[in-house]
Design a protein around this nucleic acid. Structure first.
Length: 498
DNA sequence: TCGACTGCCACCTTTGAATAGA
DNA sequence: ATCTATTCAAAGGTGGCAGTCG
């Protein structure tokens, strides 16, 4: 689902996250048989972290570099999720959605529209490397998608998110309930978009203000700060500049007279946040920009820009989190604890317990005595979403086997493959832990050996249909009941997944 | 001619293995 | 023998920039 102006449901202006509860598109018959699709009945919330930084970038017009080999986003997407069932496993994914149907170009000091956008590429989903994990884990720490890479290379096979240069996108978070080991059915499917994290994909930075912000805030770009004392490039440049200082002075005067390229000079003077006092606010130029600039006005239209950075009304600590608009009116009134038993059965439960134990060990390793929030706490205190969660301990310092935390390959795969893999591993793991389950659940497990999720093409149909029509998709809809007319779309989509 | 794109560069952070010490 | 802290090198991320391409 795309969140545009015609989005029919009230949005929470404070959290600026958008819940999609695809009840409307659910097959009624399926709903009754899939009441375990609990995800859609939970008040799940997602909020973007580091909003101050995002707003800084937004005030100038965020740009993200895309390269053939893939480039990470900065700022990267970090989200907090609340309201999940702590005992149920979820897969978290992210992709990029076109913000509008325009192509943009940089015109001296602002972005302007430059015709219609190119045909939309079917995005690949970046699967969070920790997926699948218990809701408890997702809610415990902010979820970072810093490893997500953007590219303009449509033929890449490394699971990069493919974008068009000079097009505007915003990130979209997918929360998918992991499949039930026993039942063979899946849970729900939620999506959240973050318009405040919108950006224009570029192959080289256009706006010097953005370059400054990136250099000032990204630790990897420290070498480009002017106080990088050992920076050979700047030294050499400085030397050569001194040698021709006379000529440069004349040129600079001419440039200042024409009010052009002054930012180039500024960039060489200071762009470091560490050098306090001498730095002029980077937003001076931006704030004086006319609102008619499409890129900025688009934000302001949505109420995502236009407020000065640091304004108290937007402070995370002071905002009370409002409830999301829950479309699903058929909420399951059972407590999530009860749902656990109902939904998962013994196999999943055993695995969940094991995961829980491991996570407790993980906490002990780092002397973190804080217990994970209980279900009731989560439901009763949604305001916690706005408080920054503590950072996760570094895995490199843990004594736990990596395999505990590693899940699927980092490369995005067709969702059918993903969930079949998840399911196979869950079964395999559980049989290792509790060999007796092989007998008690033998009847079921034999049947379940075959993949329960449809093949690549079917998933492709589902996602293509979603992209073309805006319909949301529930897993049972993947069962190959799709019309033949969708076949061409599905083939094209499945090819993208390679 | 010009804007978009590419590939390489120097500089930096992060990560994990190796080692030393308690 | 085990655990913890430190060191160090490799891997990988960063924007700049000159050159290429359409």
């Amino acid at each position: 689902m795309y969140v545009h102006e015609d989005y029919p449901y009230s949005l929470n202006p404070l959290t600026k996250s958008y819940g999609c509860y695809p009840q409307g598109q659910m097959n009624p018959g399926c709903r009754s048989s899939c009441s375990e699709a609990e995800l859609m009945s939970l008040p799940v919330h997602a909020a973007l972290q580091g909003r101050e930084l995002w707003e800084k970038f937004n005030s100038v017009g965020t740009e993200m570099l895309i390269t053939k080999t893939g480039r990470r986003m900065f700022p990267s997407c970090r989200v907090t999720v609340m309201g999940l069932n702590p005992k149920v496993k979820y897969v978290l994914m992210m992709d990029m959605v076109q913000f509008d149907n325009n192509k943009y170009k940089w015109n001296r000091d602002h972005w302007e529209m430059s015709g219609k956008s190119e045909p939309h590429l079917q995005n690949r989903l970046f699967i969070h490397p920790d997926s699948p994990a218990l809701g408890e884990r997702w809610m415990q720490y902010p979820i970072s998608f810093h490893k997500l890479k953007l590219t303009n290379n449509t033929f890449n096979s490394k699971g990069l998110v493919v974008l068009h240069s000079m097009h505007k996108y915003h990130p979209r978070l997918h929360i998918v309930q992991a499949p039930d080991v026993c039942g063979g059915h899946s849970g729900g499917y939620l999506r959240f978009t973050f318009p405040e994290a919108a950006f224009i994909a570029v192959t080289s930075y256009q706006n010097h203000e953005i370059t400054k912000l990136k250099i000032d805030n990204n630790p990897f770009a420290k070498g480009f700060r002017d106080n990088g004392l050992s920076r050979k490039r700047f030294r050499d440049k400085d030397m050569s500049q001194r040698s021709v200082s006379g000529q440069q002075q004349n040129k600079t005067q001419n440039q200042q007279e024409s009010h052009l390229d002054t930012t180039d000079d500024d960039e060489q003077v200071s762009s470091s946040v560490e050098s306090t006092g001498a730095v002029s606010p980077p937003d001076i130029k931006a704030t004086s920009m006319p609102v008619s600039i499409p890129f900025l006005s688009a934000f302001m239209k949505r109420g995502c820009a236009g407020l000065p950075c640091g304004q108290e009304g937007w402070s995370q600590s002071t905002i009370l989190h409002q409830s999301q608009h829950i479309i699903n009116q058929n909420r399951d009134s059972r407590r999530p604890d009860d749902n656990l038993q109902y939904m998962c059965g013994s196999l999943t439960e055993a695995l969940s317990n094991r995961m829980l134990t491991l996570q407790q060990q993980q906490q002990q390793c780092h002397s973190l005595d804080i217990q994970p929030p209980g279900v009731h706490q989560i439901y009763s205190n949604q305001a916690k979403l706005q408080q920054p969660l503590r950072l996760p301990p570094k895995l490199s310092r843990m004594q736990l086997p990596e395999s505990v935390f590693r899940s699927l390959d980092s490369n995005p795969k067709p969702l059918s493959d993903i969930f079949n893999t998840i399911r196979e591993r869950m079964i395999a793991k559980d049989l290792q832990i509790n060999p007796q389950h092989e007998q008690t659940a033998s009847g079921a497990s034999r049947e379940e050996k075959a993949p329960i999720f449809p093949a690549v093409q079917d998933c492709g149909v589902a996602f293509c249909a979603e992209q073309y029509t805006g319909l949301t998709t529930e897993w049972p809809a993947f069962n190959g009941n799709t019309e033949q007319s969708n076949e061409s779309k599905s083939v094209a989509f499945s090819q993208l997944w390679e």
